[in-house]
């Protein structure tokens, strides 16, 4: 049993609303923790939520005509523009409510995209939306590659991972670049709220999504979304994989609230990254030297993050 899951209450799962706004019958793969993350996000944001969805796995699995898994208003326009479409929805509602043509009420506007739709092709639209200050929640479901098109590498694919466009070859050992740091990029826009989350920590995730929606202005939540198909792990290990990502420091859970950093799970000692890498097919080819290289990088990045926590919380 996860030692962190139940730090709130062992029965916390039962206190969560049983209402779903992303309903079953969706066509995500077995053990898709991205669908799980989406379920938790939709559940948290509830009925008064409008979703602008980028092209990607979650779009395809949730809306094959004539069916929809959505119980909230939802729109898909293209791959790279979820943040811009959400900007338009938010502004449209604002104008119509101000002009008395829609009753005033709190309606959350959410944009969602995968790591490709966020850190690659959608980065410009996201940056624009954050800079303009639209009151919306942007959720990045990061499964660390273009899974929908067949596991091609993105700028969010971690170093060393083998994908169909960064295959582990005889000369090049898979992805040779480090994962683009989207939370830091969004935090640099000085928006009121940035958080990382993972569906292996559902209560932490839901708290963060709620906070993101409650805060006035743009909020960004970056969710590590385990993809058993693309990571080549057995589906039942999806939750375990997320836990290992956090416990090894590969993907720290933290928040940046009005410039203040907070580590949500601050481990006194990180597990060796090998415990995260070794059961994933995408990392199977890694040599001890490459694993050590990753270990060093993780240690450095984690230290950097801890220093930011200290620096931004000094009085």
């Amino acid at each position: 049993m996860d030692e962190y899951l139940d730090r709130l209450n062992i029965y916390a799962s039962r206190l969560v609303s049983q209402k779903e706004y992303f309903v079953p019958g969706h066509r995500a793969c077995q053990g898709c923790a991205e669908a799980l993350a989406l379920r938790l996000v939709a559940k948290t944001l509830g009925r008064n939520n409008i979703v602008a969805c980028a092209t990607g796995c979650m779009e395809i699995v949730s809306s094959p005509l004539p069916l929809t898994s959505w119980k909230v208003p939802w729109i898909h326009v293209a791959f790279e523009n979820a943040a811009a479409v959400a900007s338009g929805i938010e502004s449209g509602l604002k104008a119509l409510m101000r002009k008395g043509r829609l009753p005033r009420q709190k309606i959350n506007v959410m944009a969602m995209a995968g790591d490709g739709g966020t850190s690659d092709i959608g980065l410009q639209a996201l940056s624009g939306a954050l800079e303009r200050g639209h009151n919306m929640v942007y959720v990045c479901f990061d499964n660390e590659a273009y899974m929908n098109t067949g596991i091609q590498r993105s700028s969010s694919t971690p170093f060393g991972a083998s994908t169909t466009t960064s295959p582990a070859g005889k000369v090049v050992p898979g992805q040779v670049t480090w994962k683009k740091n989207m939370p830091e990029i969004t935090a640099a826009h000085n928006i009121p709220y940035v958080a990382t989350a993972c569906s292996s920590y559902p209560f932490d995730l839901m708290e963060k999504v709620k906070k993101a929606a409650d805060i006035e202005g743009p909020a960004y939540v970056h969710i590590l979304s385990i993809c058993p198909t693309g990571w080549r792990i057995p589906p039942q290990l999806a939750i375990h994989a997320g836990r290992m990502a956090i416990e090894t420091g590969m993907f720290p859970l933290y928040e940046v609230e009005r410039g203040k950093y907070r580590l949500n799970i601050d481990l006194p000692e990180l597990r060796p990254v090998e415990e995260y890498l070794r059961f994933q097919g995408r990392f199977r080819h890694l040599t001890p030297e490459l694993i050590e290289k990753i270990q060093q990088r993780v240690r450095e990045e984690y230290e950097k993050l801890k220093r930011k926590v200290e620096m931004t919380n000094e009085d």
Binding site: A12, S13, R14, V16, Q18, E20, F22, V23, P24, G25, H26, A28, Q30, G31, C32, A33, A35, L36, R39, L40, S199, P202, P228, P234, P235, Q236, A238, I239
Partner: peptide
């Protein structure tokens, strides 16, 4: 089990026990 199910295929019953909905359960084993 309820909170981790990606397919909303687990229902919490009134008495706190659970029930799988095999119409949706994809058998992921989570």
């Amino acid at each position: 089990c309820y909170i981790y199910c990606p397919d909303m295929a687990i229902k919490i019953l009134r008495d706190g026990y659970i029930e799988h909905d095999l119409y949706y359960c994809k058998g992921c084993g989570i």
